[in-house]
Amino acid sequence: MATLKELAQVNERFVGGHRLCAGCGHGISVRMVLNALDNDEHVVVGCATGCLEVASTIYPYTAWNCSFIHNAFENAGATISGVEAAYKSLKKQGKIKEDIKFVAFGGDGGTYDIGLQSLSGAMERGHNMVYVCLDNGAYMNTGIQRSSATPLGADTTTSPAGTVVPGKQQPRKDLAAVMAAHNIPYVAQTAISSWQDVHKKAKKAFEVDGPAFINILSPCPRGWRYNTPDIVELVKIAVETRFWPLFEVENGKWKLNKKPKKYVPIEEFLKPQGRFRHLFAPGNEHIIKRIQEEVDQRWLALLERCGEKPELPPR
């Protein structure tokens, strides 16, 4: 495991001067993932439309200190798999000598919803690429509309909390499990609260021969409405409350990377966020209870998949 002192010597592939909001989780996640590559490694990046894409490639600027290919909202997986196929052909013909890595970044809108078909296709065809989903739980770029990654009870502009509807009414999609069902060599879920975890998983994903998928929790200060500097604590709480478990699936084998010792109620994660404020108003207790049940159920299912004893720590 490389130390930060060594990692700080690696070329910066996502430079300052991009127009993401102050304290955006995307900037941190992208820098962590691309930092797992060595100085002499080449990488081609593609982005699904979203905050990251529109903020990092405003003409005539690019914040990507590497090759970048633009594409539309729904086809980041297809575009990068096409580039990878072209590279393979050119390499076979001897026109390219270098080894090149391919990575696609997508938000949760461009991955969970709109780009799911092209991502699924790319994974099934077995291209040697990495797909990184930066999950901030809504379409933040267009003004915080709900997506299938939005947690139950969250207030967004298309699932507004009011007197009749208390925020989003459906639980979120478990995308990492969907990707694992593609039987690809590597699937991981990670969070920036542990940079070692992100680094290790990004490195594994780049090294694997075949498609890899990483899901990163990437808070949005504007959409989640928390105190911007507290990003790392908030992500840590998401892991501690088991809302965002850290796990990886290598060649079909599930492995849990962090097992919180204590039972931390989900309220700890909901409280600092403005998008869940309405849940603490009288009459909405049943939704918090539903969220807790959802989290517990998923945690037990995950433990079972990982071959561990499915039980919750004592309250």
Binding site: L4, Q9, L20, I28
Partner: peptide
Amino acid sequence: RYCPDASIFSTDGKFDGFDYKHCKGC
């Protein structure tokens, strides 16, 4: 490691000041 704007300089693995031209003050 946690700067979203790559606005912290480091030389030879040591902290070497802030990039005030890009720091957004998060």
